[in-house]
Simulated assay, not measured.
Amino acid sequence: MKYLRAALAAFCLIPSLSAAQTYPERPVRMVVPFAVGGAADTVARAVAHKLTETLGQTVIVDNRAGANSMIGSELVARADPDGYTLLMQLGPPHNTLPFFSRNVPYDPVKDFTPIAIIGTAPQAMVVNASLPVKNLKEFIAYAKARPGKLSYGTSGVGSSQQLGGELLKAATGIDMTHVPYKGGSPALNDVVGGQVPVGILVLSNVLPHVKSGKLRLLGVLQAERAKAAPEVPTLAQAGVEGFAVPDTWVGLLGPAGMPTAVVERLRSGIEQALASPDLQTRLATAGFEVEAHPSPAKFARLLAGSVDTYRDIVAKAGIEPE
């Protein structure tokens, strides 16, 4: 009987193995759960162009914006796991939405197959140059002397920037008010203009204003220094021991249950695409550091680990989903 079951299992695998060997046989749809022109869309279009070459089939970008990326993500989560419907997503919000909304119709880990991290975007803490602090330790002392008087701007609710700010508050005991914006650009404009004294924003976006002297850079939020500014310390190195938020990523995912061979075909195509100097330049312009050797296993660890980390931050901050 056991031999019969094994034979039946092997027989059932034949169609999926065959499909994986010939993949892709038709155009591939890459869903972007944001509007045209944003960071994820910019990356998706650049990657889709290169993947069309490496896969030998057209990769079509399909923008399905709405509900803070939930509409497009749900579409992919419910699709057949055959590799023909993929998701180019940002994390956050992918890995933080359940902490801010009670109505997320999918599990960000269990309902998806991680394929490849395309790149990561280091986040940085800056202050307006008018603030009388030169480093993080001076800032913490300044903030503690003025509880509730300072505010920090970010690209929005549920961003890694907001959660980084909440983690900093919990780790240091300072009291700052979060000011969420609808995107990084308006937040940056107000921090540069002094309307908001503190910003937690994408490193590449703040660097020109740091060089001009309008902003002062206190450190990066991730565990390691950024390739784009290796002289800038992490916040842990600058004085908050153990501080780090997970990498902010842009990555390619598919529905849960994709065949391993199809995942590897896509991963290999992504790695070839990322070797292109043109694509590297476009990713850098969008604020991302290129992932040199994309690995589904590494992506899966980052995704699951970041959800756990953000869950802890949210719990400490007392944030409740709405």
Rank of each mutant, 00 (worst) to 15 (best):
M70P: 01
Y84V: 11
P93W: 05
M125E: 09
R102P: 14
T52H: 12
G91Y: 00
G66S: 10
A77E: 08
P92G: 01
L87R: 05
T113M: 06
A124Y: 13
P122K: 10
I118V: 15
Q57H: 06
A121M: 15
E74G: 00
T113K: 02
G37K: 04
N128R: 11
G72R: 07
E53Y: 08
T58E: 15
D41N: 08
A129P: 00
D62Y: 09
P98V: 07
F112R: 10
V127R: 00
I115P: 09
V43M: 11
G83T: 06
R102L: 12
H49L: 14
L51P: 04
L97F: 01
T85F: 04
S130C: 02
V59Y: 07
Q89D: 13
T42Q: 13
V76T: 09
T52C: 12
M88G: 04
N103W: 14
I117A: 09
V32P: 03
E74I: 00
I117D: 10
V126F: 09
T42A: 12
L86Q: 02
R78M: 14
A67S: 15
A67P: 03
V36H: 05
V109Y: 09
T52N: 11
L86A: 00
G72P: 08
N103Q: 15
A77R: 02
L87P: 02
G37I: 02
A121I: 09
H49D: 15
P114R: 07
A67H: 14
G38P: 02
E53N: 04
E53L: 14
I117Y: 01
V61A: 05
F34S: 05
G66T: 11
A65R: 00
D80T: 14
A39F: 03
V76E: 09
I60G: 00
L131N: 00
G83K: 04
L51M: 10
Q57S: 04
I71L: 14
S73H: 02
D62I: 03
T120S: 14
D41C: 04
K50L: 05
V104T: 09
F34G: 00
N68I: 03
G38V: 03
A121G: 07
V32A: 04
A44I: 06
S130K: 15
R64L: 12
R78N: 15
A40T: 13
N63K: 05
A48G: 08
G38K: 01
D62S: 11
A40H: 05
P105L: 03
A65H: 01
